[in-house]
Design a protein around this nucleic acid. Structure first.
Lengths: 334, 334
DNA sequence: CTGAAAGCGCTAACAT
DNA sequence: ATGTTAGCGCTTTCAG
């Protein structure tokens, strides 16, 4: 069943059918429109999206490229994006890049071939300007996600990482901690860099000397937390608190502390970042929370504006992080 | 840049370009092929998937319809599907149905319009034959997921739920439990029904009388676990162990038990089902594990076979569940 | 208000 | 081995 069949059955031209299909106000009498609508209903005709897309250059489909949907950070984001997309009659094709630039390149190319209208992308490396320029080359609308960017002409939604780092560190300082280890993320990401900035600022404001020896870079993973926390304990590094730059790192920190027979928060205070995978951890984790679902929605909304040529007020939407104090941090007398 | 441009630049017909594009072995000399390839490379030409799909009736895209990607059960599955799809040059469009039949209908219709080659679907209600027949009407290849089905001509991948229910219950019986509450899922799903079957069978084999008073239906949610476990404790229902038919239910059970000041496994033994969101729970949860990632992969592979007209040996692929004994169950003397 | 016809970019049947 | 041509199912311009 195609537009031609419907036209034949309704005794009109395909143009007329197309007009009612697309709700064009002009050029068709109310009765005729109603009649055609009836035929469409009866025949259960659905227009062919490929043919339509071929001429309109629109597919009502966007790409969502993230590192890995099984990383607990992403499902809520994906749901936010998908919900907002569905509301606006868009679909989303999901791509896992595993932080590999080659996979990012590949998917972008494939998505373009398939004619997606735009791409929401959690980019692997927002610090490398050459890579950024290669990816964002103007051939397709792109909204960056999570990882901020050094190019200020790029649409982007993320959280205020610096503020988050500041809030977490400051909380620990207010609780009397002075020796605060910083288990930061990979040194290739701006996200980590910003969180570290916040950490530094909080220290500076409290006149605590910044000690690079207790700042440790690594992946946003449990292993990172285990490795460095073990090191801190084994080498008896003077530290009373740990700012973990992600939940996964914090989980690793917990494990290392517990495996040594130490207690949280009695022996070490710990803060996390993200609030996605720690619902069941004990003691409950004090951490920086970002509104992932809303950020996903916002990313789509930004994309939607782009696609409809409405200039968003701001290219970059920055969400406020929140500090949730739970039971993994305690006051100490230094 | 389209096929015409490339043909012009290479001084050949568009047919020739099409032939090299699609790796057709016949009808082109090696040198010419190489030359055209070079032009394609230089011009960075990428074929238009919409135009291609319009004629081939294939898009190398499938739909993945699940209830909710933020339910921890699905991300690994989605990753399995997407990984297998990517390996075979397919893309997947993600749809959250929230278990709503209307949304399922809607998405199926939309996906068809967009020309996806097939749909992998975790259906909301595999028990309702009319609904099933409406959804699986032969107009598009469908592979059912997770929820088994009463129609045996339908392609389907799921876990042996009955066996899982049996294994969990049997484990508790072997540990000396006789009064085992069964917090089963929604009574609309075959999944629940099968898990309950397994529970019953284990009881029967051990000559323990089946007591419907301690079998409770509810959603696969934390709330269900809390509600019924509270009830069991408050009403002093004689129960020493709980078989929770999902992790979320088990989490609720934990909370209810702890909030009353009771201990696991000292006061109650608890088993879960799924192994997806309980990594951090304490004490660690004894549970039935299903290989979600592999099941996702398998679902795509089945779909891939369907799309390439190779008859899979079996329409239904049933994965074996596994019992992982951790610290939430203990032996008792009854 | 309505319709004929061109064309989106590609594949495939058919010539040569 | 290569090219010509007829669609795929739709939107859109233009004519009436």
């Amino acid at each position: 069943m195609n537009i031609k069949d419907v036209a034949r059955i309704a005794n009109v031209s395909i143009t007329t059918v197309s007009r009612v299909l697309n709700n064009k106000p002009e050029g068709i009498s109310p009765e005729k429109r109603k009649y055609v609508l009836k035929i469409i209903e009866e025949t259960e005709y659905r227009p062919n999206g490929l043919a339509r897309g071929l001429v309109t250059k629109r597919t009502s489909t966007i790409g969502l490229m993230i590192s890995d949907i099984s990383n607990p950070f992403y499902p809520h984001i994906a749901r936010g994006v998908e919900d907002a997309a569905e509301t606006n009659n868009y679909n989303v094709v999901l791509c896992n890049t595993y932080w590999k630039p080659d996979r990012e390149r590949h998917y972008i190319s494939v998505l373009k071939e398939k004619g997606v209208d735009g791409i929401i992308l959690a980019i692997s490396n927002g610090k490398n300007i050459d890579y950024l320029n290669e990816i964002i080359d103007g051939t397709i609308p792109i909204v960056l996600f999570d990882e901020p960017t050094i190019r200020d002409d790029v649409y982007c939604v993320c959280v205020d990482n610096k503020k988050g780092g500041y809030m977490a560190t400051n909380h620990l300082i207010e609780y009397g901690h002075q020796r605060i280890a910083c288990l930061i993320g990979p040194n290739t990401t701006l996200t980590s860099e910003e969180r570290l900035e916040g950490y530094k600022q909080a220290l500076a404001e409290a006149n605590i000397e910044y000690d690079p020896n207790i700042v440790m870079y690594g992946g946003y993973s449990e292993e990172t937390g285990i490795k460095y926390m073990n090191q801190i304990i084994d080498e008896k590094i003077n530290v009373t608190a740990v700012f973990a730059a992600s939940d996964e790192i914090a989980i690793g920190v917990y494990k290392a502390i517990k495996s040594h027979g130490y207690r949280i928060p009695d022996d070490f205070s710990v803060t996390g970042f993200d609030d996605v995978s720690t619902r069941l951890i004990e003691p409950s984790l004090t951490e920086i929370v970002q509104p992932t679902y809303e950020m996903g929605q916002k990313a789509f909304e930004l994309m939607f504006k782009l696609l409809n040529n409405v200039k968003p007020r701001k290219k970059t939407v920055i969400f406020e992080p929140d500090l949730i104090v739970r039971n993994s941090t305690r006051r100490i007398n230094y």
